[in-house]
């Protein structure tokens, strides 16, 4: 049987009482989901002013992702299609408000009232037709259209997704763009099959400075071929975004590696110049910023 839950049963059936409990008692899942939520919140890039915001958690499940929002002081509304998952969230006394709702039917919020939205490991479910009445395209359209409307202008939505393949990713991104969002996909750890994670980072309203796509985390094999130390400073960019000019990517490729620097320093020494000694800091990678 497939390892993808999405191919096994509709979400409200797959996440039954037993699965909801199993899901929420696994320390491994708890850790993964809270890391993903931390990162999503970081990518939301809310103003750094300490003001608690009103956020949505779409496909909130048992509240693992929402808890990260609470820990950071925000108020949230979580919606999910599985009553069993929401029951566990109640049991865990999460601080957000909960709703039983199907994102594929559109979100029923007033326009412009929400400060930001996250969704962790949920939106790919929309690509499946679980009922004869389901048309993934119509459901994606309803979801993104309603998400766009309820967000305040300039607000972001960060959706961590597990698309099954390239076509699914394009499908999801395509409907986000058609709804009017600016943005694209941020890929963290693109070269690791296990740690690789994709986030749709979407901004409501016309493209502006604030809609520039942040960088992904993790090594970019092309730029670090001469540096296999794998230390944490190797945070380089790998993004797939149609709206970003090619130039940006090229500049990172031109960065000279450690070998090249050491060779040049050696050449200078031979010429008799004063050159600082080679240490582990020589030509080290800097933290990526955004």
């Amino acid at each position: 049987m497939s390892s993808r839950p999405e191919l096994q049963a509709p979400p409200e059936i797959f996440y039954d009482d037993a699965e909801a409990r199993k899901y929420t008692s696994s320390s491994r899942i708890i850790e993964i989901q809270s890391k993903l939520s931390e990162r999503a919140l970081e990518l939301l890039a809310l103003p750094d002013d300490g003001v608690p915001r009103l956020l949505l958690d779409i496909g909130c499940g048992s509240g693992l992702s929402g808890e990260t929002l609470s820990e950071n002081g925000h108020r949230w509304i979580g919606l999910d299609i599985s009553q069993s998952m929401l029951n566990i969230a109640l049991e865990r006394e999460v601080e957000g408000d909960l709703m039983l709702s199907d994102m594929g039917q559109g979100l029923g919020f007033r326009p412009g009232v929400i400060d930001g939205a996250i969704s962790i490991s949920a939106v790919q479910w929309l690509c499946n037709a679980d009922k004869s009445s389901h048309n993934p395209r119509l459901r994606l359209k309803a979801f993104f259209g309603s998400l766009y409307r309820c967000l305040a202008r300039g607000a972001r939505a960060v959706l961590q997704v597990y698309p099954e393949n390239l076509a699914q990713r394009e499908l999801i991104l395509g409907f986000a763009m058609r709804a009017g969002f600016a943005g694209g996909v941020v890929v963290d750890y693109p070269h690791s099959s296990k740690s690789r994670k994709e986030y749709l980072v979407l901004t409501c309203g016309p493209p502006s400075l604030s809609t520039a796509l942040p960088s992904g985390k993790g090594e970019d094999g092309e730029t670090c071929s001469d540096d296999d130390s794998g230390d944490e400073d190797n945070q380089t960019v790998c993004i797939s975004d149609r709206h970003r000019p090619r130039k940006k990517l090229k500049t990172t490729k031109k960065v000279k590696g450690r070998e090249w620097v050491i060779k040049k320093k050696e050449q200078m020494r031979r010429k008799g110049n004063m050159v600082p000694p080679d240490t582990k800091y020589t030509a080290r990678k800097r933290k990526a910023r955004f």
Partner: peptide, 19 residues
């Protein structure tokens, strides 16, 4: 459900103009 959430919710049944 808080009144905050109630204040944000609007009925989105197809065809409803003021939910």
């Amino acid at each position: 459900m808080r009144l905050l959430t109630h204040n944000m919710l609007s009925c989105n049944i197809k065809g409803v103009t003021n939910g």
